[in-house]
Design a protein around this nucleic acid. Structure first.
Lengths: 149, 149
DNA sequence: TGACACCCTATAGCTACTGTAGGGTCAAGA
DNA sequence: TCTTGACCCTACAGTAGCTATAGGGTGTCA
């Protein structure tokens, strides 16, 4: 029953590329499987489960680092699950933030788009004008040493 | 009036890092400026405008490739501006798509989070259970040659 | 003269893969 | 038996958009 899959079959089950699985193995997310006589990787059911778990985390937008944390928690089943809650909560916050950013962005783009008043040439294009003038950019970064006191 | 800024001052005006400006220059988004006797880059007003334009496009989520297209259109002021409209429209569509994806994701995460019923150990954690069982992943990719007919 | 902020080039690192080169394995068909 | 073709292997380069580091040079002030 503990099937013996080759990497291509595993990839198909998980809906990912063969290269992705080898990549996860290099990163230590997937354990190195046994090998056939011809040096082919051979996977069992636990590998299938683990890969599906990883892919599901990824499809929920988690990073590989977060996914690794969840896997580690999963491998220590007697720990309290508050850590898992926290990880998911943090992720929800990040997704919310990104969502708000994108919504603001969408609004700005629509405003920008409305600047085009059917003129004919680029020279008179309201969109380009807006892109040039508006806001003058966020001024977030600018890494230079602090001015001496 | 056509100021002569060093790269650090330009970076500060645009709210980006010095390295980012040099990176844009390597990519051809920023033209190579003149140099001082000591080989320092010296920028004028046109460079300031161009960098602000780029940063504004980036802050609107456009790729550098899209930004380059807009810059090229900008440099050919007699072309019809329909191309600009189209570029912005395409971008709006992509932002909308991403927004919808994120909203679906947020819903899934909240459902996932609600699986935790205040149990104590990871072993019994409903979140991990959901991550293992649910949906069995999208099965999108899986690149293998088509089965022979 | 020294200290320090700033600049230079070249190169490596980040995330999460994806793609390629150059080979080996394995099963089926001629 | 030989060949074909799908599949596998390792190692490495490439993607986007920066960011960081090493190892140097420049410019200004005390």
């Amino acid at each position: 029953m503990s099937s013996s899959l080759r990497i291509g079959e595993l990839a198909e089950r998980a809906g990912c590329l063969v290269e992705t699985i080898r990549y996860y193995e290099r990163l230590g997310l997937m354990p190195a499987p046994g090998r056939s006589l011809g040096n082919y990787r051979l996977y069992g059911d636990t590998h299938v489960d683990r890969l599906l778990f990883i892919r599901r985390c990824r499809s929920l937008g988690m990073s590989l680092a977060e996914t690794k944390q969840l896997l580690d928690l999963h491998d220590a089943p007697d720990r309290i699950c508050r850590d898992i809650d926290r990880l998911i909560d943090d992720h929800i916050v990040r997704v919310n933030d990104r969502l708000a950013e994108l919504q603001a962005l969408q609004l700005q783009l629509k405003r920008l788009r409305s600047q085009c008043h059917r003129v004919r040439t680029v020279k008179e294009c309201g969109i380009l004008k807006s892109l040039k003038d508006e806001g003058n950019t966020g001024r977030r970064q600018a890494r230079r040493r602090a001015a001496p006191a």
